[in-house]
């Protein structure tokens, strides 16, 4: 689970203030206008920006002062997810060991992760030869290998066409369910994510304008959430 206890993040004039409890295994979609604090929230949980006040807990452990690489989270970015000089296999294998020293067991784990995202046999290829969807799957395979209880995604489907977007959303949902992962995902658009997002958080000017189970919010949406549905 993810617990935000009275956290405050100040970036110049902007201030994010938030308290929130996300149950273990939940999949949260964070929406809001540009500048509302979506990416700041994700960066605070990931550790890229330090919270000026409050605590961040993951599975009951206080990670507020923990370095990015030490936090029990894996991260999927919108862009720049793959190293162009490495093969697909090595890009995925970075999730296991940054020094790429792979045991036979590691290699088998990479192959399994590639198969899980439907990229069986793509290992030797370079990122430049992949389609947008295949690149997204490669990054997803690496995230799986990190095997952390929490996944953070910053607009992971923004550059994908609607068909790929739905396909990737289904894949992410299957993988999260199979591994019991908690997901926090920033998105501009909730359409197509009806089954993936179990919870929705609407941010406005650094504060939660609406938060709760997606089903309940969809059934009786507050006015501010309507444009996002």
């Amino acid at each position: 689970m993810i617990g935000l206890r009275d956290i405050a993040v100040v970036l110049g004039e902007f201030r994010l203030e938030m308290s929130l409890d996300l149950p273990k295994g939940a999949r949260l979609a964070v929406v809001g206008a540009s500048g509302s604090g979506k990416s700041t929230l994700l960066n605070a949980v990931a550790g890229f920006v330090a919270a000026d006040a409050g605590r961040i807990e993951i599975d009951g452990r206080d990670v507020t002062g923990t370095a990015v690489a030490e936090r029990p989270v894996s991260i999927l970015f919108q862009d720049g997810n793959l190293f162009p000089h490495l093969s697909v296999f090595d890009n995925v294998a970075l999730g296991l060991r940054p020094d790429l020293r792979q045991s036979p067991g590691d290699r088998a784990a990479v192959d399994t992760a590639l198969a899980q995202v439907g990229l069986d046999g793509f290992g030797p290829r370079r990122p430049g030869s992949l389609s947008g969807g295949q690149e997204a799957r490669t990054a997803l395979a690496r995230m799986l290998l990190r095997d952390r209880p929490v996944a953070l995604m910053d607009e992971p489907f923004a550059s994908l066409d609607p068909a790929l977007r739905a396909e990737m959303a289904g894949l992410v949902q299957d993988l999260c369910e199979a591994r019991g992962m908690t997901l926090m995902m920033v998105t501009h658009d909730l359409r197509g994510l009806e089954t993936l997002a179990t919870h929705v958080l609407l941010l406005a000017e650094g504060r939660a304008a609406a938060f709760g189970p997606a089903e309940a919010l969809r059934a009786d949406p507050p006015a501010a959430l309507l444009p996002w549905l």
């Binding site: 990015v68 690489a69 991260i75 970015f77 862009d79």
Partner: peptide, 22 residues
């Protein structure tokens, strides 16, 4: 180099050797 790739390196815990290499 996309800024997000540097952040990815941070998230993956790259050390000096990996920064040299990648």
């Amino acid at each position: 180099i996309p800024a997000e790739r540097l952040r990815l390196a941070t998230a993956l815990g790259f050390g000096p050797g990996q920064m040299e290499r990648h």
